[in-house]
Simulated scan of single mutants.
Amino acid sequence: MVTVFKTNVQCPAKAVFIVNGLLSEYPAFRINFDLEDCDRILRVEGNHIEINGIIASLQNHGYLCEELPY
C-alpha cells in the first residue's frame, strides 16, 4: 500500500531529518520525499500505514501535512 501526503517541507536537510524520524517509528516502511513536486510530496509505502500518526509527526515539527486522495 502506498499513501501520498502533501506537505510544505522545502529544505532537503529537513526532509532527511523527517524521513529518518519516521523510519525510526516505522522501520518496515519505505518513505521518501519529492520536493521537486509542487505539493512537496511525502510517499509512504508499507502495510497498515498509520496516516494520523504520520500527519501528527510532521505537524509536531511545524509542517503542514495532509493525505492526498488516489
Results as ranks from 00 to 15, higher is better:
Cys65Arg: 02
Leu35Met: 10
Ile41Met: 06
Tyr63Val: 05
His61Trp: 13
Leu58Asn: 04
Tyr70His: 06
Pro69Met: 08
Glu45Thr: 06
Ser57Asp: 06
Tyr26Asn: 08
Leu68Asn: 02
Ser57Trp: 11
Glu67Lys: 15
Gly21Trp: 08
Asn47Asp: 15
Glu36His: 14
Asn52Arg: 12
Ala28Arg: 13
Ala28Pro: 03
Asp34Trp: 03
Arg40Gly: 07
Ser24Val: 11
Phe29Glu: 03
Arg40Val: 01
Arg40Ala: 12
Ala56Asn: 12
Asp39Cys: 03
Ala56Trp: 04
Arg40Tyr: 10
Ile18Val: 13
Gly53Ala: 10
Val9Thr: 02
Ile51Glu: 08
Asn32Gly: 09
Thr7Pro: 07
Asp34Cys: 08
Asp39Gln: 03
Ile51Cys: 02
Val44His: 01
Glu50Val: 11
Leu68Ala: 00
Asn47Met: 09
Val16Lys: 13
Ile41Tyr: 00
Gly53Arg: 04
Ser57Ala: 14
Leu64Cys: 11
Lys6Asn: 15
Cys65Tyr: 14
His48Glu: 14
Ile49Tyr: 05
Lys6Asp: 11
Cys11Leu: 03
Thr3His: 15
Val44Lys: 04
Leu22Gln: 07
Gln10Gly: 09
Asn32Glu: 11
Cys11Ser: 12
Thr3Pro: 00
Pro12Cys: 09
Ile31Phe: 05
Pro69Val: 14
Leu64Gln: 13
Val4Ile: 13
Ile49Ala: 05
Phe5Trp: 01
Asp39Glu: 13
Asn32Met: 06
Leu23Phe: 03
Lys6Leu: 12
Leu68Lys: 04
Asn20Tyr: 06
Ile18Pro: 08
Gln10Cys: 07
Glu36Thr: 12
Ala13Trp: 07
Asp37Gln: 08
Ile51Thr: 10
Asn47Gln: 15
Asp34Met: 07
